[in-house]
Amino acid sequence: MNILFGALIIIAVVFGLVTQNGAGLTQGVITGAEDSINLLLTMAGMLMLWSGIMEIAARGGVTKMIGKALAPILQRLFKNVNKNSKALEYISMNVSANLLGLGNAATPFGLSAMNQLHRLGGESDRATDDMVMFVVMNTASIQIFPTMIGSLRQAYSSTAPFEILPCVWISSATALAVGLIIAKSFCNIKQRSD
């Protein structure tokens, strides 16, 4: 992150010097700072509203309900995880919280799940098939309701901030499927060579 920030600014200034656009650069600094706070303020309402709604859902046990429904499916993906294990419970809760967009809740469950998988794998420094599967799942976005994107679109006066939802669902489901299939097929290749 530190390198990225430095690189962006240095590239910008060097480029600006080459193209002799000092005025534009200065303008960029000023409007950038101004715009970013305007943006945050404009999206604040939407973001708070959705966080509030999602809190009601979480307290109503929706996270647990989805987690239970998902457990049988998840069990097929993770071959070394037992049906009643802590690992499967944490994985289900992590996926369920991710679906609801409760990122702050999803991460602790995810870290606990990882810890359990690590134990199952004999605590080596080499990732097990299940760990790879789990991390790939978490590098894909499975949020049903992308509130941040909706709020951002709203902030830039979109006429229909949520019209992209079906596209997001199809696109993220396909991406997740591809990630999982590749993860799974690598495990199979390894098994055959054993």
Binding site: L111, N115, H118, D125, M131, V136, N138, T139, A140, V178
Partner: peptide, 28 residues
Amino acid sequence: ATAVYYGSVKVKKIRHTLVAALSADFTA
């Protein structure tokens, strides 16, 4: 996400994780 999850259990050999994860990003 990869760094946070593997970092938490000090796993260094992450095998095919990035291949699968980046293929998913490309698909998206």
